[in-house]
Design a protein around this nucleic acid. Structure first.
Lengths: 198, 198, 198, 198
DNA sequence: CATGAATGAGTTTTCATTCAT
DNA sequence: AATGAATGAAAACTCATTCAT
């Protein structure tokens, strides 16, 4: 297998277990990846570089999993929204199995401001693309169907954040207080209410 | 000055800067507090103990700042909600200046399961009290005035989390994309929409 | 009570529990003595000084307990020897309740060579006096009664060390393999054999 | 060279100089062994582990040096005893050059009761084997030759302890008051007297 | 005299990183 | 390329000693 990827995946898994990237040691990563400690440094020049790669990888995964643009063509507003929410839930579940990437985690674990900026830019990109997909595939239909009111990006961002964060929280906690089917229903209803034309 | 408090405050400030409690060193704390390294250990028997105290302190602050029960008596539903949101914003601003306490941060930084449980319990308490205050002072009036629909605690919790987290995020980021006045307005509108009687 | 003595006694007791003088901390001593840490330094200028005082105290005790010169007048050789052995046993028991002072312990715990020399000299004095008492009160009678052979101090020292050390060891160990009555009998017999005139 | 052994030997030498194992620091050990501090922890996971290894090593040495079973076959009682004593002397000299292992030292330096028990058991084993060798090769011949009286193990143990301790003491002290040839003669005579058939 | 808060030098231990093989 | 032995800087923590009150 690709050693570089194997290192990233091993690191990721250990970070999830430990609850923090800083607590993962190179020795552990090497053991989990089944290679020598020195070999890690053949592929990455420092622990920081691994962390950045891991963050990159997770953001990439989020992009792939969340930012789905297909399958909306034939659906109306209501079904599109249902699909969007279902997809967001599935995506958050998959990502969470790997690692939850909090803004905090990045701030904590990346030392160089320069790199921090790049990472934050990627996250902003992700959110922008998410917004674009939502607008193009769901919100726009709502407008055409006269079901939603006209608002601005700021407002829509808040709505999307509500969805993403609730799913993150629910996959995060072991003792979810709310079953996920119901949570999807709630969020569907709430989104409808928040966007409904007067 | 009270040394114990001074240590907690120094630790907190450094944790905020570093973005993580584990990265704060006792040496730094001692320097920031203007005392010797050994002195820190006169007041706390281990770093873990300091961390727990810091978490306790922040939860205490949150309780004091968020959970305000006064001044709602003479207000109707709309004004009560405005007041609640304004207060939540002020509280999140104050707490954030100190340190934002994420679920993650606790999971990462507290080692002993026993203590973790206590801390999580305190957070749950906080959320329950917050819900109670919201129901008693705002939601109940909405019901009386016929302005809100009848729903359950789960739904209300999601609404309250929306408010708290948006404020946390907005005070969190240096480059807030949204001015806070406007955010309050948005959240007021959104809450109204989410609770509005059909 | 005399604070100085109280410090010495507290130190001694703690040293016995810990099994080593170095592991006793001034804080513990102060607590045990019921005084402040600073007060300890009113009576002793350093931990080393306390240790030396403790050693002095124990040597003094040994002198008082072992070096008994009385009560031999009217006894013959055999009874004198019995008495000597009984006394050695009692003494070793009393001292052991306080602290066993091994040559090693002194070497380990006293840092300044000068003081070490003084202490070793005191121990040599003790042994010399012990020998003198044994010769004057027991061995001399044996010679007069024709029961013992003529030998030199070196030989007698070995015999006396045998007695002292067996008692020390037996009071030392919790699971003494031999009951003390019997041990006294054995040592009496052995001494007789070792000194017996051909 | 074998680093693990080199660490043990360095530790041992320093412990001998300092007179106590607890006072030896890892830094000193590393310097003496000519390696880095971190390297010590590649071979031992803690200071306690080193101490246990050192004790093990010394007990092993004692076993090898003291418990010699050969060369007694063709000798009679008297010569066997002479040989036994000469060997005990040589052994104690060799071990002492390394480190004298006192019961005290173990009690002080080993923290975990479990390990303490193992060590004490090893020492008991050593003493039992020593007794067995003495009985098989020396005492039994004395019985056959009618030169010694019949006695029990307790009595024999005291005799053997006399020998071992006198040699330990004499090699221990820098200013031995007695030359070693003479000491061997004394102990030979004494053993004969203590065991002699009436 | 008595105190204990304050201190920092010194200790054990961890771990990212290097480098000879 | 791959390795893991070796390293030392840095971290948490201890404790004899000082000194203002």
């Amino acid at each position: 297998m690709d050693k570089k990827k194997s290192i990233i995946l091993s690191f990721m898994e250990l970070a999830k277990e430990a609850g923090s990237m800083n607590e993962v040691t190179i020795k552990e990563v090497a053991i989990k990846a089944g290679i020598g400690k020195g070999t890690v440094y053949e592929y990455f020049s420092s622990k920081e570089e691994i962390i950045v790669s891991v963050i990159d990888f997770v953001i990439g995964m989020m992009m792939d999993l969340y930012l789905i643009d297909d399958g909306y063509e034939e659906l109306g507003f209501n079904d599109s929204l249902r699909k969007y929410i279902a997809n967001a839930y599935e995506a958050s579940k998959s990502v969470s199995q790997i690692m939850t990437l909090q803004h905090d985690q990045i701030a904590n674990n990346v030392k160089m401001q320069e790199i921090k900026d790049i990472v934050f830019k990627k996250i902003a990109d992700f959110q922008n693309q998410n917004l674009k997909i939502f607008k193009d595939n769901i919100y726009k239909k709502g407008l055409l169907e006269g079901l939603v009111f006209e608002t601005n990006d700021e407002y829509l961002r808040i709505v999307l954040r509500l969805i993403v964060r609730e799913f993150q929280d629910s996959t995060h906690m072991q003792d979810a207080p709310l079953d996920t089917e119901k949570l999807q229903d709630y969020l569907y209803d709430m989104t409808i209410k928040l966007l409904k034309a007067e």
